[in-house]
């Protein structure tokens, strides 16, 4: 009960603050990792698709409100990212999915969907091609995010020993 409903929300706020205050310091040419997507993927792989979809929506709503950005944009992209991640949920392989290199690839895909749609929502004003949006504004942040998600894999033996 606690892990399912309260823990993700409790973890979200410090992660979102780090995302908005410290992550800009490690961004390269406006390309930054998305820590919130890593948390979203982790909890979705533990709880399932429907849960991930709703959690993505909730994280997106809070993030839009905290960042002062376009309300609805992160909600949309993170809902979709949670939904896509849900396809990798397997009740019998939870530990394997969340503690091995598999999570890095799932984060890559979820983050690609998330950052591409987040940028695409600004397309009415942006006059560049969809391919360019997906490659430059989707794939590069996704790669950066997936590299950071390695920390989840590296920390997992430590977590198991606790």
């Amino acid at each position: 009960m606690f892990e399912k409903y309260f823990l993700p929300i409790i973890i979200f706020f410090p992660i979102a603050i780090v995302q908005l205050t410290l992550v800009p310091l490690i961004s390269v040419q406006s390309i930054a990792p998305d820590l919130i997507t890593i948390v979203l993927v982790y909890f979705t792989l533990r709880q399932g698709q429907l849960y991930g979809t709703v959690l993505g929506f909730t994280f997106g709503l809070f993030f839009d409100l905290m960042s002062g950005g376009l309300l609805g944009s992160a909600m949309f992209s993170k809902t979709l990212a949670g939904f896509i991640t849900g396809y990798f949920y397997n009740e019998s392989k939870i530990l394997e999915n969340t503690t091995t290199i598999k999570i890095v690839f799932i984060v890559l895909l979820a983050s690609l969907v998330d950052s591409s749609f987040y940028s695409l929502l600004a397309l009415p004003e942006v006059r560049i091609s969809i391919t360019s949006v997906i490659l430059e504004q989707g794939l590069l942040p996704a790669l950066y995010t997936s590299i950071l998600s390695l920390t989840v894999v590296l920390l997992s033996p430590f977590k198991k020993s606790l």
């Binding site: 205050t21 376009l70 944009s73």
Partner: peptide, 14 residues
């Protein structure tokens, strides 16, 4: 600036 939204299209600060 106390927080930045790093994005190629949605740039804003608080």
């Amino acid at each position: 600036i106390i927080s930045k939204l790093v994005s190629k299209t949605h740039g804003n600060f608080i």
